[in-house]
Design a protein around this nucleic acid. Structure first.
Lengths: 264, 264
DNA sequence: CTGTTTTGTCCCATTATATGGGATATTCAA
DNA sequence: TTGAATATCCCATATAATGGGACAAAACAG
C-alpha cells in the first residue's frame, strides 16, 4: 500500500508544489531565481506564484517570494488530526517529568519518520527543533519501533525507496542486520538508538496504538550518552515510556467507549 | 500591494488546494465525499488526490484521505523563516515569566492575523491552540497593533475584504471607530482588546520591527478579565511587552551588524 | 536626478493536459 | 462468500497551461 501508482498526475499541481519546495529550500527567492532553478519560463513561474499567493500559499515581500502561512494552518491541523494526537501531546509532559529528557511523538509518512510533537526538558542541553522534520526510519529509535510492526515486504519497500544511508559509524547499513534488529524490537517491545543518527545520542522508543489496534506512531526519549546512563537507557526509560503508552491506550479505550466508535 | 490581480490563475493548482482544504474542513474524507462536496467528477478528484498523495500532501488510510504531513514540514518552516522569528519565540518565555499569562507572536497575512508562536503560562486556565489559527485583525489586540501601522488605504482594503463582523457585544463594527482607535494605538504604542473577540478576555499587544525597521508582527499577552486587573491591563503588561520588544529589537541590531545586512 | 539595466507583468498562438463519462477492479461489510 | 459501495482506469473532447517576446516598473549606477 505504498506509492507506486500509475494514475497520470496533475502536472500543474506538481509544478506548483515544486515551486513552493524550491522556495523552502532556498529560504525564499525571486521569480527569476525560481525560474532559473527549475528551468521553467518566467511567465509560467509568474502565473504559478501569483496563483499561490492569492490562495495564501505563498507570501511576498517586494519581489521576494516565500512559503505562505496557509501551510502553517494546515500543518497544525495534521498535528491534531486525530483526537488521540491531542492526548498524546498532553502525555509528553508526563514523559518529560518521568525521564527529564527530550521527548517526541512521531509517525511514519512515505517511508520516513516525521515528528508531530516534541517537548523539551527543563535542562534543554540540546534544543533541536524536531517538529515537522523528516528522519530516516532505519537510524532512529522512533522509526525502528514503527517499522518493526510492519510486514517485511513493506520494510523492504522503504529500503528500496530510501536506502540505508550511513550517517554515523553506528548506522545500520545492512538489510539483514536491520531485519534482525526489528525482530529484537518486537521481542523487547521497544527500540533503541545507539548513536546511529548522531554520534553520542541515545534514544528509546515504543509504539502507540489506537483503541482499534491501529498503529498511530511512536513515543521516544532522547539525550546525550553522558546524560543517559546504561541502566537508564536499558531499564528506567523503556519502563517509563511503556507505562505512559499503556496509560494512553487505556484512555483511548475510554474515549472510544464514550462515542461508541469501532473501526478497523 | 494586496491581492486583486488579473494574472490568469493556474486552475489545476487551485483545484488541488481546494481539495486539501475540503479535507481539512471535514477532517478527512473519501473520494466520493470530496467529489460530491466540490461537485467535481470522481475521476478528476481521484487524479488530484493520487497526485497529492504521491507528493506527500495527502495521506491515506484505507479509503479515507486526509491532509498530508508535508504541510507540517512547510508550516514549521514558515514559523522560523526569518532569523528574528527564532529570537522572538525564545523571548516569549521571558514574557510569560514577566506576566504569568498566555503570550503569542502573530503576523498579518492576507488581511487576517495568524499566530506563529505561542507560550502557555504554568496555570494555563485556558489552553487554546492558537498557533496556525487565523484571527480577524479588527477584534484582536495583536491585529489592531499591526494594522495601526499600516496606511489607512490598506486598512480600508482589509475592511472591504473581511468586513468588521461582530463577534461579541464589544466588537468594533464601525469603520470610524476602528480608525479612531488605531490613532489611539499609535499614540500609546500598544493595543488593547477588551472582550472584543471573546467575552471577558483581555489582551495587550505591541509590534516588533526588524533592524531595518520593517514591521514583523506583534507580541501579545492574553487572559481572562478576572485574572488581569485594571492596573495590570493598563500598566504592568504593556510595560512588560514594550520592554521585551525593545530588548528584541536591540538584539536584531546586533544580529544584523554581525552579518552586515541592510535592507529596505 | 537621469539613463541604463534588471526584473516583474502581460498577451497570444500553439501545444499539452485536464476533464468527465463510463467500464472495470477493489474494497468493505454482513 | 456475496452483494453493494467505492476506488481505479481508459479514452475522446474540450480546456487550460505554456513560453516567447513586448511592455512596464523598479533598482541601480553615474
Amino acid at each position: 500500500m505504498t506509492h507506486p501508482n500509475k494514475t497520470p498526475s496533475v502536472k500543474s499541481t506538481i509544478k506548483s508544489l515544486q515551486i513552493v519546495e524550491e522556495l523552502q529550500k532556498r529560504n525564499g527567492g525571486t521569480l527569476k531565481e525560481i525560474s532559473n532553478a527549475l528551468d521553467i519560463s518566467k511567465s509560467t513561474i509568474h502565473r504559478h506564484l501569483i496563483t499561490l499567493e492569492n490562495a495564501g500559499y505563498v507570501t511576498r515581500d517586494g519581489n521576494t517570494f516565500d512559503v505562505g502561512y496557509r501551510f502553517l494552518n494546515l500543518g497544525q491541523y495534521t498535528r491534531f488530526r486525530r483526537p488521540e494526537f491531542g492526548e498524546i501531546k498532553s502525555a509528553l509532559s508526563d514523559l518529560v517529568s518521568a525521564t527529564g529528557h527530550e521527548v517526541a511523538f512521531s509517525v511514519l509518512d512515505h517511508g520516513k519518520i516525521i515528528c508531530l510533537h516534541q517537548e523539551h526538558s527543563q535542562a534543554d542541553y540540546f534544543d533541536q527543533r524536531s517538529t515537522g522534520n523528516y528522519f530516516y526510519a532505519h537510524n532512529s529509535a522512533a522509526g525502528k519501533a514503527i517499522i518493526a510492526e510492519k510486514p517485511d515486504r513493506e520494510v523492504q519497500e522503504i529500503i528500496d525507496e530510501h536506502g540505508l544511508p550511513q550517517v554515523t559509524a553506528k548506522t545500520i547499513t545492512e538489510e539483514n542486520e536491520l531485519f534482525d534488529q526489528l525482530e529484537t524490537i518486537r521481542e523487547q517491545g521497544y527500540a533503541l538508538n545507539r548513536g546511529e543518527s548522531t554520534e553520542g545520542l541515545r534514544s528509546v522508543a515504543a509504539t502507540v496504538h489506537s483503541d482499534a489496534g491501529q498503529l498511530l506512531g511512536s513515543l521516544s526519549v532522547s539525550g546525550p550518552k553522558y546524560y543517559i546512563g546504561d541502566k537508564e537507557f536499558h531499564e528506567t526509560i523503556p519502563m517509563s515510556i511503556l507505562e505512559i503508552v499503556s496509560k494512553l491506550e487505556q484512555k483511548f479505550g475510554e474515549m472510544d467507549n464514550r462515542s461508541g466508535k469501532s473501526v478497523n
